[in-house]
Amino acid sequence: MPMLIRTTSDVAPSQITPKSVYLRRRAFLERAIAMGLVLPLLPAQALAVGARKLSGRPGPFSASEKQTPYKDVTTYNNFYEFGTGKDEPAIYAPKMKTRPWAVTVDGEVKRGGVFGIEDLLKLAPMQDRVYRHRCVEAWSMVIPWVGYPLAELIKRVEPTGRAKYVAFTTKLDPETMVGTRLPLLDWPYVEGLRLDEAMHPLTLLTFGLYGELLPNQNGAPVRVVVPWKYGFKSAKSIVRVTFTEQQPKTAWNEAAPNEYGFYSNVNPNVDHPRWSQARERRIGEDGFFTPKRKTLMFNGYANQVAELYAGMDLKKFF
């Protein structure tokens, strides 16, 4: 784990983990040891201990709800590249290399090209944004992300008049991404948005959470967060951003078109064919004996985004 073997001179003051985070981790580790769980979790912890600080200025749209504990946010993940178990990404993802990292921007843009991760980190001022996160599996979290609007990047690359959609491609590395050795989805993972959705000020190009760089299992080193859509729309570990005229073929939509629509806006009135979307369980907060809470239209962001879908039949374009 290279991040651990670091001489003192490598550590800038800004990189030292804040004490509260450190204590939180220590409490977790102690509990994990008590539970005999520490071995499978060790790689994730080892990396998290070396995580670098990333903070931003307070941004708009932040939810004031109780934030989901760091431990839950970083150990309960759907990231099928690292396996279908929700505990697997935290176990396997730390092996993925996130430096060097480049993101290719291509398709219908005038100023496309390859962006190094260090350049992307400096492209616009970082903001702290606390968003609700609603998974298609009817659970939810509240996560303090760090990033800046995707629109900042889009404006700089100047989409052509033909650009109507944006596709995000996730890294594909069968060496470390053990899940991609199975034909679970049509790898690499591709997700997409309509251009106006991608330009919306809520759509965040995200580099961190809880004041530090993203842990790998949460989509390091760069992902999008689209808080009014089900979680799988928010592509992780992005290596390519392609502007297209046609609606891109997206992973879950291709895998089961009747279950996962291209839009996949959070909508309590449109059930997944196999389960209801009317309610959700807030991870880390709705305890064992708490009923699930009602899911909000557009995950509670209706005031911001409803107009994007004016006149559309959301039952048809689910």
Binding site: R31, M35, L37, K71, D72, T75, Y76, K86, D87, W139, R281, I283, G284, G287, F288
Partner: peptide, 13 residues
């Protein structure tokens, strides 16, 4: 696991 909150992030699941 329920008593010691050791069933992970989503104990009901």
């Amino acid at each position: 696991g329920v008593a010691y909150d050791a069933l992970g992030a989503n104990p009901v699941e």
